[in-house]
Amino acid sequence: MTQESPLLEVENLEVHFHRGRSFWPGAKSKTVRAVNGVSLTVHPGETVGLVGESGSGKSTFGRAVLRLEAPTAGLVLFEGVDVARGTRGDIATLRRRTAMIFQDPYGSLNPRMTIGDALAEVLRVHRLVPVDRIPDRVGELLTLVGLEPAHATRKPGDMSGGQCQRAGIARALAIEPRLIIADECVAALDVSIQGQIINLLMELRARMGLAMIFIAHDLAIVRHLCDRVAVMYLGRIVEEGPTEAVFTAPRHPYTATLIAAIPDINPDHRLPADPPPGDPPSPMNPPPGCPFHPRCAFAIDDCRGGGPPTPKGDRDHWGACLLPPSVFSPSFQPNDEPPSGDV
């Protein structure tokens, strides 16, 4: 484990939304538990992957860390300060040290501002460099992400998706953050451009010691980029551990299912003949017991009732499943399985 104190500690974070307010007074409005008791720790310089399908709450989690959504309950400690209930000043500090990269390269830039203006605005608002140094710094930032200083005069509409995403990363870097939250930041890009952005992120991470929460549904990219992975399902983390351990010996059947469902480029690694049935259920009415049990091929009676299973395994790699991992994860040798118990 890292000796350094963690950069970000999230404990039992809950984000609920209220939907469908009824016309009749007294009738209950529906509560969507988008994030339902999530704990996650990020150390300086570490890249944590957050994977899951739609409705898993992974994006809401990322937004709640930056207080773009108001948390319902739980703690978000950034450098030791609780920002979930923080003052306006705490939130301002958080946002000066944490930046977000968005999915839609065009949508995340103001269409009526040039790239240069957007970068200069960050520098000016946070007084990061003296006013007369701003144009130089804008040029530096653009060069850093592989664009030309001349791109400063362009507007998002005049650039390609990959270039816009680079500009978005330059803007995120302008505040000199310690933590970057990247929300599906390559999902909207062409395959040949995705690699360019991933390489850029890896290079910047190495050069600047950035910590990163990489939210994605593309497991291959997560496996390549991340040190640790947390798998979310219906607002909860069902498994967390070092990337290679999670991918080679998953501790939750959902993770195993997810990994098996990626179409491999090697035609001999066939997709499972009977993929898990059903869609990810809606967080509006999550099933009792283990949230994954309706789609789980290994579910036993105990999975169908009570609360969600408690984490099992060790502190470093755990899964919230009642069953021993060797049941659903063939590469898990029973003899090297650590004594299972609550973490």
């Binding site: 937004r63 930056l66 773009l68 301002a92 946002r95 000066r96 944490t98 930046a99 977000m100 968005f102 999915q103 839609d104 949508g107 995340s108 830039l109 103001n110 269409p111 605005e121 960050v122 608002v125 946070h126 978005g168 803007r171 505040i175």
Partner: peptide, 17 residues
């Protein structure tokens, strides 16, 4: 709720800006 507005908020800009 557009991304670029959320981005502006996430960069710590005040409501007036």
């Amino acid at each position: 709720n557009a991304d670029f507005v959320q981005a502006a908020v996430s960069l710590g800009y005040g409501p007036i800006r």
